[in-house]
Design a protein around this nucleic acid. Structure first.
Lengths: 157, 157
DNA sequence: TACAAAAGTTAGCTTTGGCTAAATTGTGTA
DNA sequence: TACACAATTTAGCCAAAGCTAACTTTTGTA
């Protein structure tokens, strides 16, 4: 067969193909679920950063740092309000609720673990920050532990 | 301040916050861009797998393995047709175009690099497959090279 | 203090990718 | 061969997250 793109398959590949439909589906479902929390997590984490840096988080700055327009931010902030993560009177800047603060903290830590891991592995600081933005939402607890352990080990020497 | 969730910041954290708005925005934009190609890549990769396993890729099986309904698959297959990645006469099973084959092949290789890397690092085979599904779409060329090198190095010993 | 510019919001449009219900087509078997 | 069941498609709904245009509020400064 000249047209089978799988002529160089390894043992591991075969294992992958042998996964049950259900197992495979649950992976894809997890990705879809992660996408739904990404927006919330990115906003809350960024808001915490801005408060830390500037003493306040203003929508205009959130828009700038996310690379989206102000109306988009405004709409998404309403969702965060509904979910009880932020407090904001109209036309005023944003505060985090206790729940929002905790989520921000958890996200920041996870982001840090991923970036530090990539850097320990040999990825440049800049690309590490860049890739972590996407990777951090798709890392299970198990993998996160392994990342942490690797970084700790590597930085000892 | 008792309520600043950033009291334990490291050097690296400060660097992160010092990134320019533009730099930070480009990271988020990259994530949004990646999301748009994810569906296409997942489908094409899965179609190649199914053809390899069964000799044919049928929509009903794609639906089962992605964990979505058949109409969803049908709709998304139309997009793949429009983009010239697959061929399909109505009510018949699916073939990949040359372009589709190449994309599938690239995705399969990248998927493999990520899974093998995670396993080499110490993550269980099952979780590696699971996490790779999400991670693979957010790994830059630089990081991918580092992954590859690590796996090669690790498997020598 | 008044007013122009900046910031924030609202309204309404678009695309994407889910879904269900219902129609159509293909297939295997009595 | 006829018919029931499985597979596929179509139609139409929804929510999320982006956008522009237009409106309101706040802010800084002449």
């Amino acid at each position: 067969m000249t047209c089978d793109p799988m002529s160089d398959m390894t043992e591991t590949d075969e294992n992958a193909l042998n996964r049950s439909p259900d197992e495979q589906a649950s992976g894809f479902e997890a990705v879809r679920t992660a996408h739904q929390s990404e927006m919330v997590e990115d906003y809350v984490e960024l808001i915490a950063e801005l408060i830390h840096m500037n003493g306040a988080a203003r929508p205009v700055e959130i828009a700038e740092r996310l690379g989206v327009t102000q109306p988009t931010v405004s709409k998404n902030l309403n969702r965060l309000k509904r979910e009880g993560l932020i407090l904001q009177e109209p036309y005023r800047s944003i505060r985090l609720t206790e729940e929002g603060r905790q989520l921000a903290e958890a996200c920041r830590k996870r982001h840090r673990i991923v970036v530090d891991f990539l850097v320990a592995l040999g990825v440049s600081q800049e690309v590490a920050e860049y890739d972590a933005e996407g990777i951090e939402h798709h890392v299970s607890e198990e993998t996160l532990s392994v990342f942490r352990a690797f970084t700790r080990e590597r930085s000892k020497s």
